[in-house]
Amino acid sequence: MTAASWPTELRVAGDRRTLTIAFDDGRRFELPAEYLRIASPSAEVQGHSPDERKTVPGKRNVEIIGVEPVGNYAVRITFDDMHDTGIFGWPYLAELGEKQAERWANYLAELDAKGLSREPRRA
């Protein structure tokens, strides 16, 4: 993301499963709620070092229930599992869009390696 890049659109889909973000340099990304949830920049998910990062299972059906601005540099996304501690800065959202295929493939491989699933746990 260049210094001149700035979000021009931020929209949650009607089904609450996708966040669309467009930038003034022409880039546009449709980011699934599940992807955003498992990549949350929160300490709960990322830990305080790369060794502490968590693989978050069971979020296939997660939805976005709120998006709040944080200053003029980020948004706080609230998910229907009540996770809301990640602050998604504009550069991070652009990175998630640009590297979505690679990051998603890595996530699926991590789930598989750890014997975890995208499906929610049944009570």
Results as ranks from 00 to 15, higher is better:
T2S: 10
M82W: 08
R11H: 12
P91K: 05
P32T: 09
P7D: 04
G89N: 14
E95F: 04
V75A: 11
A43H: 10
G97I: 02
S40K: 07
G66M: 10
T20N: 08
F88A: 10
G47F: 14
E44C: 02
A4V: 15
P120W: 13
D112I: 01
A94S: 15
L36S: 10
N106F: 13
L10A: 04
K54P: 01
D24S: 06
T85N: 11
V56D: 13
G115H: 03
A33M: 14
T8C: 07
G14S: 12
V75G: 03
P7Q: 05
N61C: 08
P50V: 03
H48C: 12
H83T: 10
E119D: 15
A74H: 04
P32L: 12
T85I: 03
R103A: 14
N61H: 13
S40L: 01
P69K: 03
D24Q: 01
V62Q: 02
A4F: 14
P69R: 06
K54L: 10
R122Q: 08
E102R: 11
S42V: 02
T8P: 11
E119K: 15
Q100L: 13
T8M: 01
R76Y: 00
D24W: 01
A113V: 02
K99T: 04
T20H: 12
R76M: 12
E9H: 10
P32K: 08
I64G: 07
N61D: 09
D25L: 01
D15P: 09
E95R: 14
G14M: 04
G66W: 10
A101W: 00
D81Q: 02
G115Y: 02
L96Y: 13
G115E: 06
N61E: 11
Y73L: 02
R11Y: 04
I65F: 01
P120M: 12
R103P: 01
L10D: 13
A74K: 07
D81N: 11
D84W: 02
R60K: 15
P57K: 00
L31C: 08
A4G: 08
G97Y: 03
R121M: 13
G115W: 05
T78P: 03
D25I: 03
T85R: 12
L111C: 07
G89C: 07
S49M: 04
G26N: 05
H83M: 10
I38E: 15
G66D: 07
E98K: 04
K99Q: 02
R53F: 03
F79G: 13
T55Q: 01
T2P: 05
T85F: 03
L36P: 15
D80K: 08
T8D: 03
